[in-house]
């Protein structure tokens, strides 16, 4: 709980951009790397979906919890890596982030997006879900999305890591990482990430994980180069 919200403190509010960001900046530097852990991570627990038989049948092999997904070489999945400081401002992103509820799971588990970026939430299941973002900085809401209802179109106004739950299916758990920077990535199953298109400058790069906390590194980009940034987070078994 504490770790989850301490990330908020690390977020730096940025001055609003004066020059509009071009959608696909061709040149610029890249920061890429890998997130790993030390210590003992919690065991992934099987999820008991028995109250919703629809969802049980959608998963031939039982699904496990995604709040701490680790892989070979102690890699950590679903870590949000972003520019916490040094960014030169950005225009709001206009491409829509798609978020799905399918088989009583949130897909992807962590969705990163920019402030004011359009977000569309779909219910792909043949039954109702409710989406309850437990926002504290932004306005909290809690809406059901029954079968046949249109997708929910929304956006977030303030940077925040927002835990997401479905009260109807208490095991459903995800995160919206709402960031003021346009430079962010979520680590893949090998723990790898890459932030590209960075203009020259000095950056604070932060990695955030819902259970393993945050860590920041300073990286300076001089031109069209790729700089490494590797994070080692501390895991606890419980």
């Amino acid at each position: 709980m504490i770790a989850r919200f301490s990330a908020l403190v690390a977020l730096v509010a940025l001055a609003s951009g004066t020059t509009p960001r071009e959608p696909h900046r061709p040149a610029g530097g890249t920061i890429s790397g890998k997130v790993t852990f030390t210590g003992t991570p919690p065991k992934a627990k099987p999820i008991d979906m028995s109250k919703e038989p629809n969802c049980v049948t959608q998963h031939p092999t039982p699904v496990t919890t995604e709040d701490a997904v680790t892989g070979p070489g102690n890699s950590v999945r679903y870590v949000v890596v972003y520019i916490a400081a040094g960014d030169q401002g950005a225009a709001p992103a206009t491409d829509t982030v798609r978020y799905d509820q399918k088989g009583c799971q949130y897909i992807p588990h962590v969705a990163a997006m920019q402030v004011h970026q359009p977000l569309t939430i779909y219910n792909d299941d043949p039954h109702s879900h409710n989406i309850h973002p437990l926002a504290r900085v932004n306005a909290e809401w809690n809406k059901s999305q029954p079968k046949g209802a249109p997708p929910i179109r929304t956006a977030w106004d303030e940077p925040e890591f927002i835990a997401l739950k479905c009260n109807v299916h208490p095991w459903m758990h995800g995160y919206f990482a709402v960031l003021s920077t346009p430079h962010f990535a979520v680590t893949d199953s090998s723990g790898a990430f890459s932030l590209s298109g960075l203009p020259p400058g000095k950056y604070t790069v932060t990695a955030w994980h819902e259970r393993f906390g945050t860590q920041s590194l300073e990286v300076t980009i001089a031109g069209s180069e790729t700089k490494p940034a590797n994070f080692v987070l501390t895991a606890r078994p419980y």
Binding site: I47, K51, A163, E210
Partner: peptide, 26 residues
Amino acid sequence: NDATQNFFGLDPANDTTARDDIVVGT
């Protein structure tokens, strides 16, 4: 915490009797 599937608020880190408790949805 539903997110960590700790529906009963167990404390396996400190409470050894909680570690083997079986929690299921059926």
